[in-house]
């Protein structure tokens, strides 16, 4: 059945445009980062030194995950708009199979994100801070956490897409939740609770570089450590896919 999914996705120009945009924008952002001046000093090559590069890169890449979320929303809402989910059920696909394909697709997108970060990390690290190359593999496991983060965010995007069924409102709702609704909710909730909200949990997987230093000035952060956030992120991911399945199964197509 996944072959059918690939038949839909591979010839679709929108997919390649968004993926290209993800790579190019992330590369440009990381490249431009070296020219940024902080307190009158250029960040320069220090940005690209191993092993800290991996945490910086995954943190920056987490902002670009929204592009992958938007892509998945488009791919799912297209199926409602073209009524192809409906046709595939008529043709003999089960709702579980259709959703399983989207889950596998989101896995592929997560792998794509991880490979992009890996590629850019090696490229910038080895070309701009070659003297730290011996430590290139230290902390590289953070990319796996980044992959889980992408999967989590995509599960949220899938739920929004199944719920709304139209690309424009779906993308808007997804961005509104990530950028406005949850931050506002966090504002009104005590720190002990807001760190368990889904977007915050996913963000906790790729923490802000130098958070430890900031903590010494502002006091300890309420955010979960990546290791604490990991099981919760997996639970949220499973929950969102499960809800998407129930919605799809119990509504008319």
């Amino acid at each position: 059945m996944f072959r059918a999914e690939l038949r839909k996705v591979l010839p679709y120009r929108t997919v390649w445009i968004i993926l290209l945009l993800f790579v190019v924008l992330l590369a440009l952002f990381v490249s431009a980062g070296g020219s940024v001046t902080l307190n009158g000093q250029r960040v320069g090559a220090t940005l690209y030194t191993f092993p800290g590069l991996w945490q910086k890169l995954t943190y920056v890449a987490s902002y670009f995950n929204l592009l992958l979320g938007i892509l998945l929303i488009i791919l799912i809402t297209d199926e409602f708009q073209f009524r192809t989910f409906r046709q595939q059920v008529i043709d003999g696909a089960s709702v579980a199979e259709l959703l399983q394909n989207k889950l596998l697709l989101s896995g592929l997108l997560a792998v794509f994100g991880m490979l992009t970060v890996l590629g850019l990390g090696f490229y910038f690290g080895l070309t701009r801070a070659a003297d730290t190359a011996s430590q290139a593999t230290v902390g590289i496991t953070g990319i796996a956490l980044y992959g889980i983060q992408v999967l989590g965010l995509l599960s949220m995007a899938a739920l929004v897409a199944v719920l709304v069924r139209r690309s424009g409102p779906g993308i808007l709702l997804f961005l509104l939740y990530a950028w406005v609704a949850e931050p506002l909710l966090r504002f009104s909730l005590p720190d002990s609770l807001d760190r368990f909200l889904p977007a915050k949990v996913f963000n906790s997987l790729t923490p802000l570089p130098g958070q430890e230093m900031i903590d010494t000035v502002t006091g300890p952060s309420s955010a979960l450590l990546p290791t604490e956030a990991l099981p919760l992120a997996l639970v949220y991911t499973a929950l969102f896919w499960g809800l998407s399945y129930l919605l799809l199964r119990n509504r008319d197509l």
């Binding site: 038949r7 010839p11 297209d78 073209f82 409906r86 046709q87």
Partner: peptide
């Protein structure tokens, strides 16, 4: 089965759409 309107991916060719449907139908 054909229900109401023909439902296919507009950016795919007739052949690509049928190959996809054949995959779904095994």
């Amino acid at each position: 089965a054909l229900l109401e309107t023909p439902n296919f991916f507009p950016y795919l060719s007739a052949r690509q759409n049928l190959l996809l449907a054949a995959d779904v139908k095994r």
